[in-house]
Amino acid sequence: MDINYDLAVGTTRELNQKLNAAATKDADVSFRVLNPKGAHTLAVGMTSNISVDIQGHVGYYCGGMNQNAHIKVLGNAGPAVAENMMSGRVTVSGSVSHYAGASAHGGLLVVQGDSSSRCGISLKGANIVVQGSVGHMSAFMAQSGSMVVCGDAGDALGDSLYEAKLYVRGNVASLGTDCVEKTLLDEHKREIDGLLERAGVTGADASEFRRFGSARKLYNFDVDNADAY
């Protein structure tokens, strides 16, 4: 079933209610959202595997805490798109502002353009694929999950990183505290290939990526590392 919802006449509240009501009734629903015009908190808290196509730019927290739904933004997204996503998928055809995928626990976030700073901050198990570049402090304190960046990474990549895996194809401006380059093994290439395929990214070869991870030196406080804190 295809449903159009026009935000030029409707409201965010009504849209989210309709999305959730449709979700509880029938999983095979496709929503098309028109005239989002940068509205905040669109398609947040989705629970079932409906698809939502948002035709235009969105504001803050689009797809926040998503469970199961497939959300597509045909435009750019404001701060914290797919924040704390649990499962499902959020795709942005344009670029995204800061905090994209913040603390996301599961699911896949695909950014077809660039991401601003702090992409994947506090990541907790989700996967992020950015076709362009990511800004500074990306993957700050990222705990688990993987981030694949086809372009460049800004300063202080992976600062205070825990167990998340970072893959960057282009240039890395600088690494954050306790983030180090690690050898790219076959298992990592397979992971990159898998994520690129799921994200629908072609023309990037897994062996062109470099892998970064935690040096694990800050895991337990050590006086001799005091300068790093």
Binding site: T12, R13, N16, H40, T41, V44, G45, G59, Y60, Y61, G64, M65, P79, A80, E83, N84, Y99, A102, S103, R118, I121, S122, F140
Partner: peptide
């Protein structure tokens, strides 16, 4: 991780309410 000042927080709270 996803908001900085009170203006952002207002939107964050809107998200939680939604």
């Amino acid at each position: 991780p996803d908001w900085t000042g009170p203006d952002d927080l207002a939107i964050k709270i809107q998200e939680l309410r939604e």
